[in-house]
């Protein structure tokens, strides 16, 4: 599993730039940033280097930030790669809260999934390869 940086933003102008600014001030490199928006607030999900230090930097800046363990699964960067994974999860009754994907280097794509259950064994039994945190970002201690 990897540690995702999660930030809660009540809808006020400038808060996303506060997030980006605080991370850049702390010298933290972002790999992917996804925003989930509702009419009233936003949730920002980030994969970055040293996620625990990043969460502390954002908390110090007065933001509601935390790290969340999520599954990172390698999928072939070909049509149908994601469909296969989702179909498998459905078949096994794994409830996906949310997901997003991003490219890692040249060789392939990574699907990030939030599943409210222990799913690692099930995913591996289905032939899906879990990506280690070290392959994606610089790891730090909680």
């Amino acid at each position: 599993m990897i540690d995702q940086l999660s930030v809660f933003l009540p809808n006020k102008k400038g808060t996303l730039s506060t997030v980006a600014g605080a991370l850049s001030d702390a010298g933290i490199n972002m790999h992917v940033l996804v925003i989930a928006d509702t009419a009233e607030y936003g949730i920002v999900r980030i994969v970055c280097d040293t996620p625990h230090a990043a969460a502390r930097a954002l908390s110090d800046a007065g933001l509601r930030a935390t790290t969340t363990p999520v599954y990172a699964v390698r999928v072939p960067n070909t049509p149908g790669g994601l469909t296969q994974l989702l179909a498998y999860c459905e078949e096994k009754g794994l409830n996906i809260e949310y997901g997003y994907c991003f490219l890692l280097g040249e060789e392939g794509a990574i699907d990030v999934l939030k599943i409210d259950a222990s799913a690692e064994d099930v995913l591996e039994a289905g032939g899906f390869e879990m990506v280690e945190p070290e392959e994606i970002y610089r790891v730090d201690e909680a």
Binding site: Q4, F8, T38, I43, R45, T66, Y98, K114
Partner: peptide
């Protein structure tokens, strides 16, 4: 109101 620190803020469904 504020949520307690251990409340999962990454999921829209739980917040809603």
């Amino acid at each position: 109101v504020e949520t307690e620190p251990d409340f999962p803020i990454d999921e829209v469904r739980k917040i809603e």
